[in-house]
C-alpha cells in the first residue's frame, strides 16, 4: 500500500533556498579549510600505509584452509561450503584418504579445493557452515592476479594462506 508522506511546510525563507545553500557552502568550505590546515585526516596512503594491524578480529578477508598442529588437513570435503556459497565460488572434488596415509582414519579429504576469488564475496558463510573448523576468512584482502586462472586459489594455495591453526577441537585426532 502506498504510503503518502506529507511534505513539510516550508517557511518563506526556506522556500527561498538561498540561506540553505549558503549554509551548505559554509559547511563544505569548513571541511576544506580544516583539511587544508592539516587538522584532520581520514584517509591513508594505501600501499605505503596499511591498516593490517588495525583490522578487527572478525575481519573477513580471503577464505583459506587450515591444518591443525599435527599437520592434518582439517577439511574433510563435506562440501557444505560449496553448497552454502552464495556466488558458487567454491568447487570441491573429494577423495578417499589412502590407507597408508597417517590420517587414513579420517577417510575423506579434498582432492581438489578451489575458490574462485573473482567470484568470492567474502561473506564468510563458508567459515560459518564448516563443521570441521577447516576454512577461515583470513585477513588477506589484496587478492590480485594477472589471469583469471591465477585468481582461482587451489588447494595448495589455500593451505599456504591458511597456515596452521592451533587450539581448535581435534575430534578426529583423539576420539576417533
Amino acid at each position: 500500500m502506498a504510503v503518502i508522506v506529507e511534505r513539510p511546510k516550508l517557511s518563506i525563507l526556506e522556500k527561498f533556498y538561498f540561506p540553505a545553500i549558503m549554509k551548505g557552502l559554509r559547511i563544505t568550505l569548513g571541511h576544506a579549510i580544516r583539511i587544508l590546515r592539516r587538522k584532520k585526516k581520514v584517509t591513508m596512503q594505501y600501499p605505503e600505509e596499511k591498516w593490517d594491524n588495525n583490522l578487527p578480529e572478525h575481519y573477513r578477508g580471503a577464505p583459506a584452509l587450515v591444518t591443525d598442529e599435527h599437520g592434518r588437513e582439517r577439511c574433510v570435503s563435506c562440501q557444505l561450503c560449496e553448497f552454502i556459497c552464495p556466488p558458487r565460488a567454491i568447487t570441491i572434488i573429494p577423495e578417499e584418504i589412502p590407507p597408508e596415509d597417517q590420517w587414513s582414519k579420517v577417510e575423506k579429504r579434498p582432492r581438489e579445493f578451489e575458490i574462485d576469488m573473482i567470484r568470492c564475496i567474502y561473506c564468510g558463510m563458508c567459515e560459518e557452515v564448516c563443521p570441521e573448523q577447516a576454512i577461515f576468512l583470513r585477513k588477506d584482502y589484496a587478492i590480485s592476479g594477472y589471469t583469471r586462472d591465477e585468481m582461482v586459489h587451489n588447494k595448495k594455495k589455500l593451505y599456504e594462506i591458511g597456515g596452521v591453526r592451533e587450539g581448535l577441537v581435534n575430534k578426529w585426532n583423539t576420539l576417533k
Binding site: 574433510v76 579420517v106 563443521p131 570441521e132 576417533k176
Partner: peptide, 11 residues
C-alpha cells in the same frame, strides 16, 4: 554415533 556427517555419504 560417531557424528561424522561431514564425511558420511548418507548425509
Amino acid at each position: 554415533h560417531p557424528l561424522d556427517c561431514p564425511i558420511c555419504d548418507q548425509a
